[in-house]
């Protein structure tokens, strides 16, 4: 007996008029401050990101990224301090290794590499932050919504 929640979800082709939802995990010390600077300096960037502040890019567990993708976002950006500038000395360098493996693995499985991106943005780089958000938003816009493993369930049934 086939279950409705077990069926294959097709990749969507609807790319027109589509605004992606992107989660940005930003480290407290550099990228979050960079985003702040972009704001106070009035740099324009697409309003597609939802920021989650984390203490350090080293705090990111790949689980968070996958969970975000499963829960309905179309892409994830993780951003931390430039190598050498980590508030915790080396958190971002540990993170870089994890990210490298994760990026490779998701690509290998067939998830578009643009869905999950990593970047370095310092507290002084407001303009760079805005540029990166533009790029990430554009990339994901081109891909369209991520539907093929989003958690969803069909709502059939009678109203009681």
């Amino acid at each position: 007996m086939k279950q409705s929640d077990n069926k294959t979800i097709r990749r969507s082709d609807d790319k027109t008029n589509y605004e992606p939802k992107i989660v940005a995990f930003l480290c407290n010390w550099c990228s979050y401050a960079g985003a702040d600077l972009a704001g106070v300096s009035r740099f324009q960037y697409p309003p597609n990101i939802r920021v989650i502040r984390v203490p350090c890019s080293g705090r990111i567990n790949p689980l968070y990224i996958i969970k975000a993708l499963q829960s309905g976002v179309d892409g994830v950006l993780v951003s931390g301090c430039h190598p050498g500038d980590c508030h915790y000395i080396s958190g971002n360098l540990f993170a870089r290794r994890k990210f490298a493996l994760m990026k490779k693995f998701l690509d290998y499985l067939g998830i578009e590499p643009e869905r999950v991106q990593f970047s370095w943005v310092s507290a002084a780089e407001g303009a760079r932050f805005a540029e990166i958000i533009k790029k990430v938003t554009n990339d994901i816009k081109k891909l369209g919504p991520l539907t093929y493993f989003r958690k969803d369930f069909e709502k059939t049934g009678k109203v009681l």
Partner: peptide
């Protein structure tokens, strides 16, 4: 057993905004 008692079975749906409960059609 999975024919009569599937591994995952939706008992009912609910909507917290509309405040309603939907019964599932048993297959």
């Amino acid at each position: 057993k999975e024919f009569f008692f599937p591994q995952t079975e939706t008992l009912f749906f609910f909507d917290t905004e509309k405040n309603e409960v939907k019964q599932t059609d048993v297959e």
